[in-house]
Amino acid sequence: MAEADRTRWDRKYASKPGGAPGWPEVFAQYVDEVPTAGQALDLACGTGSASVWLAERGLTVRGVDVSAIAIEQARRLSEGRAVSDRCRFSVGDLDDGLPPGPPVDVVLCHRFRDPRLYRAIVDRMKPGGLLAISVLSAVGAAPGIFRAATAGELDLAFADLQAIATGEGDGQAWLLARMKGDRR
């Protein structure tokens, strides 16, 4: 990611305080699919709202974001909610690939899109692991610089997974799916 992009995200997060813990609204009706134990990876975690929610649910979470300001807000949120022992946050540029680590039970990627990472995301999941991914899409919205996902992109990219639910429209595409194999 260009330094200008990193600076832009730092500026955005500096002017916007982090919110309360919460699972992304797009997946809210499927909350029962989220395990209550195991390991999670939150890509482009921002201020850690979903990471902390996952930790409060019982998972151990690694959150990664390009913005040092967002990561600091995520750390403070996890400390304030007394789950810092189950949250590890790091500044990382996902343009360089996923951070190294073991397979996980949950991968969350909310509002971040990089098709170069799709294979690595699948490879990081444990058998039975859950993927929750949402991206901005040109489907049902005016085109824009971040609305780059094409129609059917997520369904095609993650066709090897067992889809639980999928949707596309109003400028967003999303998929909730499980890695085939035993559920852990």
Rank of each mutant, 00 (worst) to 15 (best):
L156E: 15
S90I: 00
D170R: 15
L176T: 09
G80M: 07
L54M: 15
L59D: 07
R113A: 01
I164R: 04
G101M: 10
A141W: 10
L117D: 00
P35F: 05
F158G: 07
K126R: 14
G128S: 09
V122W: 01
A165C: 11
D42N: 09
L43R: 01
T47F: 03
Q172M: 15
V104D: 03
D85E: 12
D170I: 04
V64Y: 01
L154N: 03
Q162V: 14
A177V: 06
V107L: 05
A159V: 15
L161T: 09
D160M: 09
A50R: 05
D105R: 08
V106M: 05
S49D: 14
R178K: 15
R124C: 08
V83H: 07
I133F: 00
P103T: 13
A159W: 08
G48S: 05
R178T: 11
D96W: 10
V52M: 09
A163Y: 03
C109N: 06
I121V: 11
V64F: 03
S90K: 03
A55P: 12
M125K: 10
R147E: 13
H110Y: 08
V66L: 15
S134E: 05
G171L: 14
A177N: 12
P102L: 12
A44W: 02
I71V: 14
G58E: 12
D93K: 01
A159N: 14
L175C: 02
E168N: 08
D96H: 09
F146Y: 04
L59C: 06
S84V: 11
R178P: 15
Q39L: 12
A138F: 03
D105E: 13
S90T: 05
D85H: 13
V64K: 01
A37K: 14
D65Q: 09
A50N: 10
G128P: 08
L161S: 11
